[in-house]
Simulated scan of single mutants.
Amino acid sequence: MGFDYDLLVRNGLVHYYAEGKFLSPTRKVFYESFVTDVVTWTTMIDRTCSDEAMKLFGSMLVSDVEPNEVTMIAVLYAYSNKGNAGVGKTIHEHVQKKNVNCSLNLLNALLDMYVKWGCLTTAKETFDNMKVRDVFSWTSMVNGYAKLGDLLAARKFFNDMPERNFIVCALSACGQLGCMDLGQWIHQHYLNRRRIQPSMILGNVLMDMYAKYGRINSATELFGEMPKRNLVSWNTMIARYAGNAKQALTLFKEMKTMGLKPNDITFVAVLSACNHGGLVSQDIEHFESMARDYDVDPKKEHYVCVTELLERVGRLEKLIS
């Protein structure tokens, strides 16, 4: 219909394929684009692996498209996982030279990069120059000094945190920043030793942190000890058992017997479990029950789960029909 030449449409396609992790069509649309803008480049950098992201950023710099703040955040997180301190400092200098808007999120990305590489001196300089800090900023510094073995400095940063009483924020940051050791330290040395009984929200955050990094037994133990559970508690456990379809579906059944109504997040976890287990009939049944029994409208994530499984077993026409 001729819309493939419209930049807005092509950006929408790149974003759609990238969100669904369909990397081949994502690259095809991107490399066939005659015109690109900062949105096109940023989407590609943000949704590809570290190596490819770094190459794309290099290509972007020699193009006529200027990176913006969102681009730089995506680049920094890519470099923080795989890169070197020299390149990272060059990126920092580029941000300063081009007067890129240094939002809190961008500064936190810089901080995270330096901490992961053990450049604590530069990290502290960045931290000290920040006019505004949040729990991610403080948690990054605590984690950096703890990994370095300087527990006195780590404890001082932890004690100086203006929001340190909001342990939920700190543990959530640990989960998102990959600070498993620090999160476990807070749990054991701050909560357990002080005999602080985790609230339901705190229990959910702890459980999610452990499960996210493969500590399923620890997560399950916390889940079993919780005097009260809400939908988030059940969703967390079902999602983390996605690789074990039988266990995930057993939890889903138990959740419903407790009178809790599943939501769209629950069904993403359930359908993912069926996908991993190759349970075609159950996958279709749960998908059809969403709107029929629970008034939950299927979203892109649900269609992706079902489509992948049906395509794998050669029954894609079932979904179309």
Rank of each mutant, 00 (worst) to 15 (best):
F136M: 03
N129C: 07
V232L: 14
W185S: 14
N108Q: 05
H286M: 08
N81L: 05
D64M: 03
S172D: 14
Q247K: 15
L106W: 13
H276D: 04
L249C: 12
S281P: 00
A123S: 10
V280G: 11
T26W: 11
G2Y: 11
V270N: 06
D283T: 15
L191S: 08
Y303T: 04
I196G: 02
A53M: 03
L202H: 13
L8C: 11
A85R: 03
A248Q: 08
V14H: 01
D295E: 14
E125Q: 11
M141K: 02
F34V: 10
S63M: 03
R240H: 13
P227V: 03
L309V: 10
E66R: 05
L110N: 07
Q188S: 13
L23K: 10
G86N: 13
M54W: 00
H302I: 04
N235C: 14
G277N: 10
A269H: 00
W117N: 02
I186L: 15
G88P: 04
L148I: 00
I216M: 15
L206T: 13
N230M: 06
T257M: 13
K124N: 08
L23V: 13
A273D: 06
K131L: 06
V95G: 01
Y77W: 02
D295K: 10
A248F: 00
S321A: 15
I73P: 02
M180V: 11
L260V: 08
L249Y: 12
Y77A: 08
L76E: 04
L107K: 11
F34P: 01
L202G: 14
M130D: 09
V115F: 08
T307Y: 07
T43Q: 08
N192W: 00
T250V: 06
E301C: 04
F22K: 10
C49G: 01
L182V: 10
N129P: 00
S281E: 15
L279A: 09
V270S: 05
G2V: 12
P298F: 06
W117A: 03
W234F: 13
F30P: 01
R312K: 14
D297A: 05
N108R: 04
A85V: 06
R315E: 13
K246T: 11
D283L: 14
T40P: 00
D128I: 03
R27M: 13
G178T: 06
L110T: 08
L106F: 11
S321C: 12
K228T: 13
R292D: 14
A154D: 04
M161I: 15
G259S: 07
Q247F: 07
G224M: 07
G178D: 08
D150W: 01
V75P: 01
M255Q: 09
V39G: 10
M141Q: 01
R215P: 00
R194A: 15
